[in-house]
Design a protein around this nucleic acid. Structure first.
Length: 788
DNA sequence: ATAGGGTTAG
């Protein structure tokens, strides 16, 4: 309890130091029977005492009102009263000042000291239970009510309904409601806002209709609850109907109703309606301003959000509060205004600690590619919510810090917080990029056992993850078992086949998708065009590219241009590729020039490669892969001077060639091993090299001829890690099953042609996964069509 | 001295 009490200070808006309420109780050796114990507290006996108490009570109330609960407590102890009223004041004081656990604790103290709780006590303490999410406490108090004969007080019951609603248990709230001997409008309103709060707009609106069917007239609270229901579900039509009712009932000049209307319209994507309402509000408080600032952000109008924050200060002389900042930060992210966000951070620093604000800052720094700054905030937070963890995981995952994301997720699993659907959806991309197949299967198992096992959003990510981890068949199986498939499900399964070079399958899936009446979107075409480029479906690729705008009204984006450029590159028409880049309506990115570079390498054109590489270096001068690729090209042309020049350039810029490794994923042996080139560290090295030498003899490759083409001349491709891994895979996986090897770099040409032969000799399918694409070697052929 | 309301993070 001591720990729990210290937690409650984050809700505290005043500056009291921890009250050790529990100490007294811990030393308390009195019996804990449910029987009433007569109170040993004093009662005022004469008029002087009564007058003294009255003025002390007044002081007590003043302290409570100004949030000085420490001072209030001091006076409370001085009064030493057995009057329920005084105790009620204290419990209400704690609850109103955000010290919910203190409020509950005080109620227990009251019980122990034999002070009778009354119909006022219960609403205060149930409010505290709801706000502190203390379900167990709430249920205990619920049970107690009947024993003290308050089983028919409508106010007490209403407070119970709203407590269960706050705890998110609308079944419990509904049950209490059903059992109420007398129901009033407040009871109904509690249901309306309760359902809205858990995101169940349908039931909320149903309650609004029901209460009217029972002959009650909705009031402003009913309207506010119903508008929340419309906004959480984006029910614009119902929202308009509620708006009409607001006008009919004459609530249109109620500021809270106006705010709710404004928020409803902006959440439903009708920011111009929100704006119109906003302009018509003559007396704007900070809440209305904040709602408008947030409304612009929600509707991607960050400039207006900026202007609104400024006007709020100038026109109404209001200082931004914590909500203003929380709403404003995403506007900075949308606008790319890093400095404005940073100064908002500086302004807000005085409000910290504040969980929501700090979480927003993590999102902000995550969005600006500054995971280190996000990490700093995360590391210095006093209290973290699940949302905080989710934001930090996402900040890592969005910035290619996949290992960090995975580690943080593992750490979260050791905490009492239960990951939710957002957590899983945020972590799965990191699994896709950085996890082994085995780890992927573990998270799959975790999801299957969790309540999220049939969440479409999560399963979509899982489909993609399996493909990225090497098992496209499993990806397909999961897709087949998704109960409600949305456009992303189809995008995922199409992309799954795309990265494995099964382009025709992707095209088939696309037509199945259309048969099911699912409309393709921007991403669908990225997946489809990726398929066409990895599988060499040149004509199909152009056909799809041209139909995007024509048949689906989707403007091609930079990703689509990249795929088409890959397709042109495959054909070897480098002039056309270059022209395509120059005539593109969008600014070329590193990925675009990378595509031209790949094409130049594949067609051995040093001039084009240099041209492309120069552009890449202009954009990102730390692109290690680009240096290595260029150097390999020079080596192949025996331009050793240029090889040296690139080498020293890299050294000068502090860049090191990535150490390539290859890992067998589906071995039956328990220890995974990363093979580097010329690796001799595995315990079974001798056997692996024996197998390799048999295979090398069989494929009769000419050693040392192509070996000179590598970055390091001594690095003979005959002993490259991928071959060692494959040999290890051949002896440590089930006979007849595919050998799955994953690499952190692209496979070299020598190995590619060697692996094709190995697949034929051994009659085994060999799957080699690179960061972007998988090669399926079957019977001497590769799914990439020898272009990658 | 009485419960029910609006703005906020993924």
């Amino acid at each position: 309890m001591a720990v729990a009490l210290s937690h409650s200070y984050h809700y505290c808006h005043n500056s009291i130091t921890p009250i050790k309420l529990s100490e007294k109780r811990l030393d308390d050796s009195r019996p804990r029977s449910s029987k009433q114990i007569p109170s040993c507290r004093r009662k005022p006996e004469n008029s002087i005492e009564k007058r003294r108490d009255l003025s002390l009570t007044q002081a007590l109330q003043n302290h409570i009102h100004s949030g000085q609960m420490r001072d209030a407590l001091e006076i409370f102890e001085k009064i030493n009263s057995s009057e329920t009223f005084i105790w009620n004041l204290m419990i209400r004081g704690f609850a109103d000042n955000g010290l919910f656990l203190h409020a509950i604790d005080f109620y227990h103290r009251m019980e122990r000291e034999g002070i009778q709780a009354d119909n006022f006590t219960y609403p205060f303490v149930t409010k505290a239970c709801g706000a502190s999410l203390s379900m167990a406490e709430g249920q205990k108090i619920h049970g107690k009510l009947f024993k003290v004969g308050l089983g028919s007080d409508v106010c007490v019951f209403n407070s119970l309904v709203s407590m269960y609603a706050k705890l998110g248990c609308m079944e419990c709230a509904g049950k209490v409601f059903d059992e109420m001997p007398v129901k009033d409008l407040v009871s109904w309103n509690s249901l309306v806002s309760g359902y809205a709060a858990i995101g169940d707009g349908r039931n909320s609106l149903a309650c609004l209709l029901d209460l009217q069917a029972f002959g009650m007239k909705p009031d402003r609270f009913s309207m506010i609850g119903a508008l929340k229901a419309c906004s959480v579900e984006c029910f614009i039509q119902s929202g308009r109907e509620v708006h009409c009712q607001v006008l009919k009932c004459g609530f249109e000049s109620d500021l809270m109703v106006q705010t709710s209307l404004l928020d409803m319209y902006s959440k439903c994507g009708r920011v111009n309606y929100a704006e119109r309402l906003f302009h018509d509000i003559s007396q704007k408080n900070i809440v209305v301003w904040n709602a408008m600032i947030g409304g612009y952000v929600l509707n991607s109008q960050p400039l207006k959000s900026f202007a609104c924050l400024k006007r709020m200060q100038e026109e109404d002389n209001l200082s931004p509060d914590v909500v203003s900042i929380i709403n404003f930060l995403p506007a900075c992210a949308q606008l790319g205004a890093f400095l404005d966000g940073k100064s908002a951070h500086g302004y807000a620093i005085r409000i910290v600690p504040h969980v929501v604000l700090e979480t927003s800052l993590i999102d902000f720094y995550g969005a600006f590619g500054k995971p280190k700054l996000a990490e700093y905030i995360f590391g210095h937070m006093e209290e973290k919510s699940l949302v905080t963890w989710n934001s930090m995981i996402a900040a890592y995952a969005q910035n290619e810090q996949n290992k960090e994301a995975l580690d943080l997720f593992q750490e979260l699993l050791t905490k009492p917080l239960q990951p939710d659907a957002i957590t899983i959806a945020s972590i799965l991309p990191a699994y896709s990029e950085a996890a082994s197949l085995k780890e992927g299967k573990q998270i799959h198992g975790y999801i299957s056992k969790s309540e999220h096992h049939s969440n479409t959003y999560i399963l979509n990510s899982l489909v993609y993850m399996y493909a990225k981890c090497g098992e496209v068949e499993t990806a397909r199986e999961i897709f087949d078992r998704i109960l409600v498939r949305d456009v992303s499900s189809w995008n995922s399964v199409i992309m799954a086949h795309a990265i494995h070079g099964f382009g025709r399958k992707s095209i088939e899936l696309f037509s199945e998708m259309r048969d099911e009446g699912i409309k393709p979107n921007y991403i669908t075409f990225v997946s489809l065009l990726t398929s066409c480029s990895t599988s060499g479906l040149v004509d199909k690729g152009w056909e799809l590219f041209n139909s995007m705008k024509k048949d689906y009204d989707i403007d091609p984006g930079i990703e689509h241009y990249g795929c088409i450029l890959d397709i042109i590159g495959r054909t070897g028409d480098l002039d056309r590729a270059k022209n395509f880049v120059e005539e593109m309506p969008l600014a070329p990115t590193g990925r675009i020039w990378g595509s031209l570079l790949t094409a130049s390498r594949n067609h051995r054109n040093i001039e084009f490669a240099e041209f492309a590489a120069q552009h890449i270096f202009d954009l990102e001068h730390d692109n290690t892969g680009c240096y290595v690729l260029l150097s390999n090209l020079y080596a192949e042309a025996e331009r050793w001077g240029d090889v040296e020049r690139i080498k020293s350039l890299m050294k000068q810029r502090g860049l090191e060639k990535t150490v390539g490794w290859s890992l067998v994923e589906n071995t039956t042996s328990c220890k995974p091993h990363r093979f580097i080139n010329q690796d001799k560290s595995h315990v079974q090295t001798n056997m692996i090299y024996d197998v390799l030498s048999i295979l090398s003899r069989k494929i009769a490759e000419e050693k040392n001829v192509r070996g000179m083409t590598e970055f390091r001349p001594l690095d003979s491709p005959a002993n490259h890690g991928v071959r060692l891994a494959i040999c290890f895979g051949l002896i440590s996986t089930k006979v007849g099953s595919p050998v799955l090897v994953r690499k952190n770099t692209r496979i070299c040409e020598d190995c590619h042609s060697a692996v094709k032969k190995i697949s034929k000799i051994t009659k085994r399918e060999i799957v080699v996964g690179e960061p972007k694409v998988f090669h399926h070697f079957v019977n001497g052929n590769c799914s990439c069509g020898d272009y990658w």
